[in-house]
Amino acid sequence: MDDTPQEITSLVGREVYSNNGVFVGEIEDIRLDLDAEVVNGLALGELNPDLFADYDTGRRGVIVPYRWVRAVGDVVLINDIVERLKSDDEAEHALA
Rank of each mutant, 00 (worst) to 15 (best):
A36R: 09
L47E: 15
D88A: 10
N79F: 07
L44T: 06
F23S: 04
R59Y: 12
A36V: 05
V16N: 06
E92M: 07
G21W: 15
N48I: 13
M1I: 08
E26R: 14
E92C: 03
I78T: 01
E90M: 10
E83T: 11
Y17E: 07
E7I: 02
V38K: 08
L77R: 05
E46F: 12
I78N: 00
E7R: 04
N19M: 13
L95K: 08
W68V: 02
D35G: 01
P65A: 10
E26L: 08
D2H: 04
G45F: 03
A96G: 14
A43Q: 12
F52C: 03
S18N: 11
G13L: 09
D88R: 05
D74T: 09
Y17R: 06
M1G: 12
D29S: 13
A53D: 15
L11R: 03
V22A: 04
D88K: 04
R70W: 00
L95Y: 13
R67P: 00
N40P: 00
L47V: 11
V72L: 08
I78H: 01
F52T: 04
V72Y: 10
I81K: 00
F23C: 01
D80V: 08
A94N: 14
F23K: 07
Y55F: 15
G73F: 09
L34G: 06
I30Y: 08
V38H: 07
D35R: 01
D2F: 05
G61N: 09
D35E: 13
E83I: 06
L34E: 15
D33C: 05
V75T: 13
L77Y: 14
F23D: 08
E46W: 04
V62G: 06
G73H: 12
K86W: 08
T9L: 06
D50E: 15
N79S: 12
K86P: 00
V82G: 02
L32K: 05
G41H: 05
F23Q: 05
E7H: 07
R31N: 07
I81C: 02
D54V: 04
A53T: 11
D56V: 01
D56S: 05
T57A: 04
R60M: 06
I63T: 14
T57M: 03
Y55M: 08
P65I: 01
R59L: 09
M1R: 04
D74V: 03
V82Q: 08
G25L: 10
E92Q: 08
V75Y: 10
I30L: 10
F23T: 02
P5A: 05
G41K: 03
R70V: 12
M1H: 10
A71W: 13
G58I: 07
M1D: 14
D80T: 12
G25A: 09
K86G: 00
I78Q: 00
L42P: 03
D2C: 01
R84E: 15
G61L: 06
S10W: 11
D3P: 04
W68C: 04
E46C: 05
E46P: 00
W68R: 07
D35C: 00
L47Y: 13
L77T: 11
I63E: 14
V38Q: 11
E90V: 11
F52E: 13
L47H: 12
L34A: 04
E15C: 02
E37V: 07
D29T: 04
E28P: 00
V64D: 01
V76M: 02
V72W: 06
D88C: 02
